[in-house]
């Protein structure tokens, strides 16, 4: 790894979605962080369901799958394998929503309340008890804390001259974030078209070495910032584990 320090700079920042630039890392390390966010950060998700009554139009296992996909808020004091019990009791006519789930830990609740689980008609009823387990994304996608996590190179635009006088007005599309005199400019600012930003100029696009723009979204189980920090912690833990193993 390079001797220079890492440098992190946010472009957009939100609880659910963020974009940030990390400098002085290698592509391998960037991918390591991405994979850790997906696979190595455990989150709570419903894993087994005991049905007391289900007279809805869906089978028990279909409903269990839907419940498993509902994101639950994950406090940081849970260890992998720990469980939380949730209950749901809804009578038709009406719709059972994720928000109807009642948890035995007030810190664990559905991250989104408006997800329809099943529509119930007259005399239909759904009553169940479910166990949410702290599990890893590598075992099941419902435990992934991050969705659509990706990165790309930070890019720099060099003006190499004027465009030819009678050249066609063709758009020059570029998506991502560009660096301009040390400023970070998302390409949506100029409609992803470089001819809007540099009219009448001929430009070349170049990758900034060692700088990556991460785009991270969270499913709501934890804020993006925490997801990234926990992912990096798992990498640190792995490195420590390796060091221990080598010393023995």
């Amino acid at each position: 790894m390079s001797s220079q320090d890492f440098d992190v700079e946010f472009v957009d920042r939100d609880d659910r979605e963020a974009r940030f630039v990390v400098r002085n890392i290698t592509p391998a390390f960037a991918n390591g962080v991405r994979r850790a966010m997906l696979a190595d950060v455990p989150t709570l998700s419903i894993d087994s369901v005991r049905f007391v009554e289900n007279s809805s139009v869906m089978f028990d296992e279909q409903l269990a799958l839907r419940l498993g996909l509902v994101p639950l808020t994950t406090p940081d004091d849970y260890e992998a394998g720990e469980t939380v019990t949730l209950a749901l009791d809804v009578e038709g006519p009406g719709t059972a929503y994720s928000g109807d789930l009642v948890s035995n830990d007030p810190e664990v609740e559905p991250a989104d309340d408006n997800i329809p689980i099943i529509e119930l008609k007259d005399d239909q009823r759904l009553e169940l008890e479910a166990d949410a387990v702290m599990g890893y994304g590598r075992d099941h996608a419902k435990h992934q804390g991050g969705v659509a996590v990706g990165y790309r190179h930070l890019q720099r635009i060099n003006v190499v001259g004027d465009s030819p006088e009678y050249a066609d007005d063709e758009p020059r599309m570029l998506r991502g974030v560009i660096e301009e005199d040390g400023e970070l400019v998302p390409t949506d600012d100029f409609d992803n078209d470089l001819t809007n930003r540099y009219p009448g100029k001929e430009v070349e696009v170049e990758d900034v070495p060692g700088a990556f723009v991460f785009q991270v979204e969270s499913d709501g189980s934890m804020p993006v910032e925490e997801l990234v920090l926990r992912a990096v912690d798992t990498l640190v833990d792995r490195a420590d584990e390796l060091e221990q193993a080598v010393q023995l």
Binding site: V70, I115, D219
Partner: peptide, 11 residues
Amino acid sequence: SCGTVVGEHWE
């Protein structure tokens, strides 16, 4: 495809 929660927007 991507795992984003879309059900909450349906209604």
